[in-house]
Design a protein around this nucleic acid. Structure first.
Lengths: 360, 360
DNA sequence: CCTTGGCACTCCCGCGTTTCGAGTGCCAGT
DNA sequence: ACTGGCACTCGAAACGCGGGAGTGCCAAGG
């Protein structure tokens, strides 16, 4: 109810400041009621049922007038003449921005989250559990991006010979992420050379930011005699590739079964989402740039960059340390979702994941 | 057409040997035609359209008689009186076993598969690409199990200190799979001890089968003085856990968007599959035990172990070396799928993955 | 000027009815 | 054993028809 900078109401002054102009407090109450009811029932809501279910102290007729105004302003619409109203994207936007507060979770839920995440056994497991958790709480499709490499530093580099001509490079970052690369070599490799390379790379790289590692690696290369250069070069190239694979960010998805709750209109609601889930590039765009942790990003309907997902909303946020975002996570669901609860859940999960990753 | 041990037909002798008893060759032709048409159109197929589309040299009336017999035997059924026939699970079973041959892929397709897989950069990538490929070719939901740990041996064990009280264990297996475990310790760890432990574990373990590793590890533990035992024990325990995590087999899934092609009957066809995809345990059961590579397992409708998936079939096979199965892969789709093509694709992909993994 | 009850109007939705036609089963004829 | 003919069945689509929820507007009252 609060958080609305209540306009000078009832005066009729034409303030010319966007929505403030016509929308007095009660109209906003009506809008909120409409959103809440529609989210609950998924059916157009009429003036009569509105006054029944919420105790606004006015008659249906009055509400109708307000509704007409709200429709005029573009916040609600009717699917057809003489039906109830449903919120437009703009309506949801106003609701999210001004008419609702993010719902906090119950202590029991918080407890459940933190204990579930605490059981994780490695970074992969953290991410998997997070996806599962998020999907379960929000009952939507959950998306979690793996911690980006770009902000982390090198913890350890390992070179393992698989077969005489096949090496496995393993890169361990400060965030616990493990990257692997296979390198095929032209000639059989000398085990001593490998050991040498391994130790030199580690002394040169450990503690370095991944972004700075390139130059250090170049230096390492130069310390080797020309005869060994081809092999070293191959390995270094592969390693650099692993360092900078941010182009191919990894992502985990879960809760697709929740799409079944979309109800009907399979073709328009479910199909595009399922298709998007296959395309991780699209998902990354949907999650958007990681802003600060704590800040929730909400993209409603047509606000998001894909035409096919016009009936879909995205709630996302960054996670990581307080100051630096490691990656983003979020959910996608129908525009008519329960924003306060969903946003609360996303925020809470992001916090607890950050906490787990920051150690415990 | 071939591969049917043609029964002594037309004699009317009651051979009493299952389906051979009544089903002469033409009836089987009819059944095959019905399956093919139904798979193509997804609509009940009648006698008239059958003779139109296939040139069986007989009249609709004759076909009707055959159909009556086939229905009597339980191979086809009609959704309601005076509709066309659709195959039953038993009908598909017979079709798969006796009436069809696995379709081989075109050279172009083979080329595409092998070159797409060859681009993989590590084991994870191989699996991800395989899933994608399989989903794309079969246009079904694809499932790929990660190579099992149980048959592989230890290539390398690495212990990395993340923070003074936090160690990261990395296990690299002969199949290129990398397992990680985080170990929290009670006290700050001594770096020399870690180095010592690392080298002793490697000398003891490298080359060992994972199944045999437990005893070797126990031996290693005993070589340490009692004061270091708690730490060593913690690490060893975690490592053993990583060795035997077969209980929690990893799985990759893809192509869920193909579910949209199921058309209508969302509730019965799509929903249960989506739900199953979330439960990896279920998927593992669906794939079934890895038999030999080369052998295709087909589970049709109610044959698979989940009631909710009674309208779903699974086509799976093992991959790995010729003699030993590393893991399984396969697809799930509606019972009315194109079995010959699907089976061909699954078999081909399995072969190429095996080949890639066996080196190139 | 805002609010309210009243009232006429508009369509969607659900339901029963009808028609249409693909498909079947059976039978008599070759 | 096969085939043409024929009566029958039954779902799917088309049609028609209230009922009812909801609206917009207006005139009256605070």
């Amino acid at each position: 109810m609060p958080s609305v900078e209540s306009p000078a109401l009832g005066t009729g002054v034409d303030v010319e400041r966007g929505w403030v102009r016509v929308l007095d407090e009660r109209k906003l109450d009506v809008l909120r009621a409409i959103v809440e009811d529609y989210v609950a029932t998924h059916e157009p809501v009429g003036s009569k049922s509105l006054v029944d279910r919420h105790n606004l102290g006015v008659s249906p007729a009055t509400v109708r007038n307000d509704m007409a105004a709200l429709e005029e302003e573009g916040y609600i619409t009717q699917p057809h003449t003489s039906a109830g109203r449903i919120p437009t994207d703009a309506g949801y936007r106003l609701f999210v921005d001004k008419l609702s507060t993010v719902k906090t979770l119950s202590p029991a839920e918080k407890k459940a989250i933190s204990s579930f995440l605490a059981g994780a056994v490695d970074l992969d497991d953290v991410v998997r559990r997070t996806v599962r958790l998020l999907a379960q709480i929000t009952r939507q499709v959950a998306i979690v991006q793996y911690p980006t490499l770009i902000r982390s530093s090198v913890r350890h580099v390992e070179v393992v010979t698989m077969t005489p001509r096949r090496l496995l490079l393993v890169l361990i970052t400060s965030t616990g992420r493990v990257e692997q690369r296979i390198v095929e070599t032209q000639h059989d490799v000398d085990e001593h050379l490998i050991a040498d390379l391994r130790s030199r790379m580690n002394t040169a790289l450990v503690g370095q930011r991944l972004t700075d590692a390139a130059t250090s690696l170049a230096n390492v290369t130069e310390t080797f005699p020309p005869s060994d250069r081809p092999l070293v070069a191959a390995i270094v190239t592969s390693l650099l590739e692993a360092f900078s694979d941010d182009g191919e960010q990894r992502i985990a998805v879960g809760g697709a079964a929740n799409l079944t709750r979309y109800g009907d209109d399979f073709e328009r609601n479910v199909k595009p989402v399922l298709e998007a889930l296959e395309e991780h590039v699209i998902l990354l765009k949907l999650l958007g740039e990681a802003t600060h942790p704590q800040t929730l990003t909400v993209r409603i309907g047509h606000e998001n960059p894909y035409e096919e997902l016009a009936t879909t909303s995205v709630v996302a946020t960054a996670y990581g340390s307080k100051s630096e975002a490691l990656a983003t996570l979020g959910i996608v669901g129908p525009t008519h979702m329960d924003y306060p609860s969903t946003m609360g859940a996303v925020r809470a999960v992001a916090r607890y994941v950050s906490q787990i990753l920051a150690d415990s």
